[in-house]
Design a protein around this nucleic acid. Structure first.
Lengths: 192, 192, 192, 192
DNA sequence: CATGAATGAGTATTCATTCAT
DNA sequence: AATGAATGAATACTCATTCAT
């Protein structure tokens, strides 16, 4: 019911236009993948002129970088008890009802976009800063960083198989059953 | 007695040209990823005419489908003792010296290419037929197919983080150390 | 008593802004050539809004026309003894330390910009009013106007080769040596 | 009456298509100046597809470079007696009936295009190799190269004022009268 | 009156694909 | 049967210009 809910983009409102371009980019990324996004499509979806992409972001790449970045910092890893972490992270990674701005920067999107150098770089930094470092900080024993990345790898692989590729069992699995197995796989990594 | 021995220069040349297009496509896919491959580059690399892609395969997509398919069936899963499987599959998935025809259809290539519907479809079928079904057949207990796909997911995630995205710990990890952790993660899935 | 002394802050600011746009345009023209000037760059360099180009000048063309016009009448031709004219005009045409408002409307700038109809028209008028007419008025004998234009042509050609194209000998020539030859070339034109 | 005289470009004839693109480029350059030429216009004028510019030339720049280069070497300077040179060169430079392939690479075109770095570079090389060096080789005494370039400058300036800018006296002058003055201006440069 | 948001037409370039020879 | 010429649609990006506030 706010102004933001209205259909077309607001005219003469720079912040709103910028935001609607970002939102449009995120929707398209979530739906079609990074590689399939064109500035023309983004502008059309946002109801804006294509040149505004350049006014507000400078380049397609800069728009994508921002679209692929999380909208707000995620403190899940820091706030969740270690033994509940696998469950929690899995649900976050697989939530199909998450808004486009979350799904656009999800693990499965990043992994699926790894065909382009841009996405590779972003994914590398995002996983390192937003996942590896935080989780490794909570782990004792050797190879903490590697063990943290193994958790990331598992989650990324699951998300990719379930959301992108859609293998039968993974796509059809009950989330609780899945979480049960993930718990057992991750457990050896959490205790030193 | 091989096909190459048959008479008729045209037929042999045609088959050879077709094959060289496939080989070239696989090399380029292995090196640059599916997204970066153009029919022009494939033809050039194969020393063939670009139009022959259409004569022999009908479309770029059809060429890619064939290029992404395995050249020969892989019996690794069937032939390896269960407890040695994680090690073995991991090494197969990460071997940087594997020939292009193997790497072109590797997990990490497929997952990284999952930005396009084409690759998604292929990956779905390949993983199902070449991995899930075979491994699930050797597992007892419930959710065999899901447990098999979880192994696939882990391997895919590791390959992606190590080869494509290049996260620090994963890219730098010693293969034996990595295999040790994978063993422990996969173990709960193999025994019912 | 000058216009700038009049009251009313708005009017004075407006005049100053208009002037700063002109000045910025002249600097950019002198540095990069007419063809490379964009209204955006002019506005930025002037610290003004791009739309003001249209408020104050109506169009980019109109701004350029004004920028390419001399700021103050030049009485060099009228004031210099005929036999010292070649020297003097050559130095004027080639002086790299002249202010931007001079260099923006110099021969070499005009000739180098002659790729566009706009500049052609301006150059035609400027040369006629500011050079041909004045010099021809001081020449006796037939074809005075043509002889004056031949002097202009020589100066324009030298300026172009030295400043724009940068041919080796011309760009490296000592100004006095150059002036010596110009004297000898022009001499036959000055005496009937 | 040859095949080349037909209207549209020949289909499926690579050499002819390439040539018609080149011819179209030269016409447009001669008419509108280098800066105003777009690949789209060239293709349209040639009755060819825009992509063929890239097939046959690789880039717009490469097309322009070739269009601005002379079609055949000119031995005028070497073949003409020194005292007839001014006349001859002037007529060559000003001939309005010369074909587009000559006019596209004429002095006045090059000088008028000197707003772009590409043309500057070409002009520098063309003048040096095709004019300065040849003429300087025939001159005795000091500053031979500079004196040769002064001849080039005069011709360039005249061509620019007559053909591009169109100053009144220069544009209207009888060619013989003009040649008479040029003779007198150049004479001091030819004898040491 | 001045700002800056918005626009539309334009640029060079690439690519998968088809057609004529 | 094979070559290479041709095509058209698409891409990212820029610019002069206008309009609303």
């Amino acid at each position: 019911m706010t102004e933001d809910d209205q259909a077309g983009p607001r005219r003469r409102d720079a912040a709103a236009t910028r935001e609607s371009l970002l939102t449009a980019a995120r929707s398209l990324i979530a739906r079609d993948g990074v590689a399939a996004v064109s500035t023309r499509d983004v502008a059309t979806a946002a109801g804006a002129n294509q040149a505004l992409v350049y006014r507000y972001f400078g380049s397609k790449e800069a728009l994508l970088v921002e679209a692929l970045s999380p909208t707000e910092p995620d403190s899940t890893i820091a706030d969740t008890p270690l033994d509940a972490l696998p469950h929690t992270l899995l649900r976050r990674a697989l939530d199909p009802d998450a808004p486009a701005e979350i799904r656009a920067s999800s693990m499965s999107t990043l992994v699926a976009g790894a065909g382009t150098e841009l996405v590779r770089t972003i994914a590398r930094e995002r996983i390192h800063a937003g996942f590896t470092t935080q989780l490794a900080g909570r782990l004792d024993g050797p190879d903490a960083e590697l063990r943290a990345e193994l958790v990331a790898a598992l989650l990324a692989g699951i998300a990719s198989l379930r959301d992108q590729i859609g293998t039968r069992a993974m796509a059809g699995a009950d989330l609780d059953v899945l979480a049960g197995y993930v718990d057992r796989m991750v457990a050896p990594l959490l205790v030193d």
